[in-house]
Amino acid sequence: MKTNITEVLGYLAIAVIIISLFFISIRFTGYDVTSNQTGVVNVTISGAGALNFSTALLDFGTGAVVGGQAGATLQSNGTGLNASWTGPKTTGQLVLENIGNVNVSLTLSTNKTVADFIGGTAPTFKAIVADKAEKTGACTGTQTFSSYATINQTLQTACAVFGYASAVDEIDIDFELYIPNDAITGGRTIGIVAIGTYT
């Protein structure tokens, strides 16, 4: 039996018309009680800035200004000073990590004045920020603390851009103290406030 293509196409067209009319009719007559509703869900994950001090305490230890000296200068980085101080040399630092999923602008400040922290005649408190050894490029842009600079209660930009990618998400924060010989004695602490702003 020979197949007539034209007739086959014609019957297929009739079938399509019937099926289409069926779906159109149930849509407008309200009989589509088993209608499937299709939903499209869009999820937009916004950036979230988050910081964490993986090393949150730096202890300069116990010591005294060497007698006869006006004061002692202590630096926490390994090659730093430990002049006129009877205590041990400190080699630790604070380590700050960007644990969010966006780059942030980082500012650093203290929670009290240097006079309240150390006291005495002309004490100073300075900070220096550097990329952690294996995290080159973590801190870029404007860097107030690229060398030892006074840190106080004023917010100062430590890194205009503090990266979040795992290869560039950690920085070291070292400190320098100048302790005059008439400083307040006893255990002294100061808080370092790190603020990451996502823009």
Partner: peptide, 12 residues
Amino acid sequence: NSIKGGNVGVNI
């Protein structure tokens, strides 16, 4: 913003 705090101490 994310705000975190660390501490620096010394016993004089």
